[in-house]
Design a protein around this nucleic acid. Structure first.
Length: 648
RNA sequence: GCUGCUAUGGCGCAGUCGGUAGCGCGCAUCCUUGGUAAGGAUGAGGUCACCGGUUCAAAUCCGGUUAGCAGCUCCA
């Protein structure tokens, strides 16, 4: 007999050689049915694992993150098995679980159309019914390679060869006739896969490298119950309704025109209004915090970019005007502000007394993104960023960095996005010589300085190797869109290299010349992308201070029009613009419905009673009828909303 | 850039087997003058994204281009 310590601390005795699955069964039919995975002495393993000594065991179900992953991963094996049954010539690549489901990459001559996906799903259901057991098998590397070569699975051979010299056995999982290279762990049998759906098929490069062949990736998701699957699919549908790319067009925030080009959105009056409001807010806030402003050219001769290194390291991403072979002067639209704003610093000799020097600019940039990269307002070719460069001494660096971070925190909190972001410490990739300038020593120093600052500030970050700018490390503030895709909203960077390249110096107290540290930073990010995230955050129902139409005055009958315009004037005189009057001869309910759908924060209903008493009947978005109040009281109410930037 | 899908009035969509276009919403006008999420009638609006091909005939079939979508790659 062996002693098994369970999750709740209870110790039970079992026969030597008992499997975890049998233990689960002994604990109850419900747990047995729900079990996905086990954790034995802290190690994740299959439920079929057999125990021969005293152990601590916890049974993981779909409710545990690891259980869910194993469940989805097993479903990806079933997918691969089904594809091999229907298309034996298809070669298998890899098939992991991911957030919200799983995928499997196939090298197939046949394109997997939606109709084919349905057929594959049907075959998967058969496999589930067959209740195939998943059994782990370990082979010697040579054996594994020859087996996979025999089956023509060239991708698997490549993977095994990489593992071969580690001196470990290669693990496989068998389910029926299907034999798959896999480290596991897996759920015990296919019959537990009660509810799954193949959601899409797209292209994906083998090993994530665009030099490699593009494979076909089938995405899917799996649940223990059909109702959970349906709820999940419904949730995805709901998320799509918040998609800024759809909602932003519906709400007339922006549009695109095919003959203007990709990544060049037109901001309509409502979108422009929001951006302008954000811009004033940011510029005022920066001014309070000691930032000066510059206005620098949108383009420059190639000479400038040759000094900065962009000509060599970033030319593909720039819009170049002219041809170096033919033209005397070649220009390029600016892809960043750095070398332009540095000229303000270089305007005269600087002393340590000039530092820190904080230069902000609302800066329009142009980047020639590859054609497939553009996405609504999130990824565009022309955008405007709250740019800034800060030149300082080494002693000032940590404080100034903290101030930059505090500014972004303040802005994110004001926008209501603070809880939605995560931090990434973006470092260089020493193996990527094409992308990065500078020496290993320079990078070690810049990253070391940044690490210390971040750790001192207790920033909870993850590290991104190869995510640094070509001239220095970054703190990237990341946010996910409605589809779960992560983008950089805000970035704060430390740069030691460009100051040297541009000959930026200051005379220190001791009379020696030194290069300043430079912080590149944005405070709200680029306005287009931030706007996109705000549309998704609020599903178009913006806080009052940002709302492009704050008040809609709705007279009930024609005879109330004069009273309505009087109220509009009163609001305008109180400094509240963005007020409209809906004089259409529609019923009140009809007008209210439209105002609600357009997410106008306040609707003022004006009828006989209000016209008589000089009051307004206030309807608040999503809170309905608030009753009547004096016009002056309403002005106070909405002014407070605007000034405090309250979110409701 | 790559893989796949898509493109029909302002928006959302229908259009079968090729025979020169329909619906709903919106818009305009008129009637209605109403009290917190859709009152009624009439009307206007489309060279079916663009270029080319096949055909007696193309929204429909074929090729290309442009743009949009999902994903990959990329993202200073």
């Amino acid at each position: 007999m062996i002693k098994i310590t369970l999750k709740d601390g209870v110790v039970r005795e079992y026969e030597n050689g008992v499997s975890v699955l049998e233990i689960a069964k002994s604990l109850g039919a419900g747990l047995y049915k729900a079990a996905c995975l086990a954790e034995v002495n802290g190690e994740k393993c299959d439920l079929r694992t057999v125990l021969n000594e005293d152990s601590s065991v916890s049974i993981l179900t779909f409710d545990d993150e690891d259980g869910k992953r194993a469940f989805n991963h097993t479903c990806s094996h079933v997918l691969a098995q089904a594809v091999k049954r229907l298309f034996p010539e298809v070669k298998l690549a890899i098939g992991p679980s991911v957030d919200g489901g799983f995928y499997y990459d196939f090298d197939s001559e046949v394109a997997f159309t939606p109709e084919i996906l349905v057929k594959i799903e049907g075959e998967m259901k058969k496999i589930v019914k067959e209740n195939l057991f998943l059994e782990k098998v370990e082979l010697e590397p040579e054996e594994a390679i020859s087996l996979m070569e025999e089956k023509g699975e060239t991708y698997k051979v490549e993977l095994i060869k990489e593992h071969a010299d580690k001196g470990e056995k290669i693990s496989f999982y068998r389910q029926g006739e299907f034999f798959e290279l896999c480290a596991g762990p897996h759920i015990p049998d296919t019959s537990r896969l009660k509810a799954f759906k193949l959601t899409s098929c797209t292209g994906a490069y083998w090993r994530g490298d665009s030099k490699n062949k593009m494979l076909q990736r089938i995405y899917g998701t799996a649940f223990t119950k059909a109702s959970d699957l349906e709820a999940h699919l419904l949730q995805l549908e709901e998320a799509k309704k918040r998609d800024h790319n759809k909602l932003g067009r519906e709400l007339e925030i922006f549009t695109t025109v095919d003959y203007i080009g990709q990544g060049l959105p037109i901001l309509l009056p409502k979108g422009t209004h929001i951006v302008q409001t954000l811009q004033r807010f940011v510029e005022d806030e920066e001014k309070k915090r000691g930032w000066l402003r510059t206005k620098t050219p949108l383009m420059a001769k190639s000479d400038l970019y040759k000094i900065s290194g962009h000509w060599d390291h970033y030319q593909d991403g720039m819009f170049v005007l002219g041809d170096e072979e033919k033209d005397d002067e070649v220009f390029a639209l600016r892809p960043m502000t750095c070398p332009f704003q540095y000229q303000a610093y270089l305007n005269r000799a600087r002393s340590y007394r000039d530092l820190p020097m904080r230069l902000g600019e609302t800066s329009t940039l142009f980047r020639n993104e590859a054609s497939g990269e553009m996405h609504g307002l999130i990824r565009v070719r022309q955008f405007t960023i709250s740019e800034g460069h800060l030149m300082c001494t080494p002693e000032q660096l940590a404080d100034e960095f903290r101030n930059c971070l505090e500014l972004t925190t303040f802005i994110l909190k004001t926008l209501g996005l603070y809880e939605d972001v995560s931090y990434r410490f973006s470092q260089w990739d020493p193996d990527d010589k094409d992308k990065y300038i500078g020496t290993a020593e320079q990078w070690a120093e810049a990253q070391g300085v940044m690490k210390k600052i971040l750790d001192d500030l207790n920033v909870n970050y993850k590290i991104g190797i190869g995510e640094a700018a070509f001239y220095g490390p970054k703190l990237d503030i990341q946010i996910k869109n409605v589809h779960g895709k992560e983008d950089t909203l805000i970035t704060i960077q430390i740069d030691q290299m460009l100051a040297e390249k541009f000959g930026m110096e200051y005379v220190d107290k001791d009379g020696t010349k030194k290069n300043p540290y430079i912080i590149h930073r944005t405070s709200i990010g680029c306005y287009e992308r931030t706007l996109a995230l705000l549309i998704e955050k609020y599903a178009g129902a913006f806080p009052v201070w940002l709302a492009p139409e704050k008040v809609r005055i709705t007279p009930i009958a024609d005879r109330h029009h004069d009273a309505a315009y009087e109220i509009k004037n009163a609001l305008m005189q109180a400094g509240i613009d963005d007020v409209s009057v809906d004089t259409r001869s529609e019923k009140l309910g009809y007008k209210l419905r439209e105002a609600q759908l357009e997410k106008v924060p306040y609707v003022l209903v004006i009828g006989d009673k209000e016209a008589e008493e000089k009051t307004v009947s206030v309807r608040k978005r999503s809170m309905g009828d608030q009753g009547s109040m004096a016009i002056s009281d309403f002005i106070e109410l909405i002014k407070n909303d605007i000034e405090t930037k309250v979110i409701w």
